[in-house]
Amino acid sequence: MSLLPILVTVWLFLVGLYGIATSRNTIHLVSCLFVTQASTYVFLLSIGFRTGGTAPILGKLPPGAPLVDPVVQSLALTDIVVGATVSALILVFALQAHKKHGTSDPRSAPPMRG
């Protein structure tokens, strides 16, 4: 059972990579990149998980209640924000390449020149 989160992580990572490797459309490629990145969320959160633990908000919890690790949750937050904005930036490149060359196939677009 404890192998399951690792298998999910590896599977998500490889499925995303497969999509990137065989992609014929830049928007599809960016989505696959996001799937690849989702594996890091699963991995980070599974590291900090504690059986029976609740969210690391102390509030009115009795002392000694099991809590999950707040550090990895904070890292996952960073991960999501950076992923979203970087995806937006790549999509802009895709849009401009499409405007210029009339194609959104990453294999047929020639390299960009500044």
């Binding site: 404890s2 399951l4 900090g48 809590l67 999950v68 707040p70 550090v71």
Partner: peptide
């Protein structure tokens, strides 16, 4: 390689700390 490397991590649901606990 990934599975071989990652399966030696502490098992799922058995977080050992210490950082999270120190902060909490």
């Amino acid at each position: 390689a990934l599975v071989a490397a990652l399966r030696h991590l502490p098992s799922f649901g058995d977080y050992q700390g210490p950082y999270g606990d120190v902060i909490l």
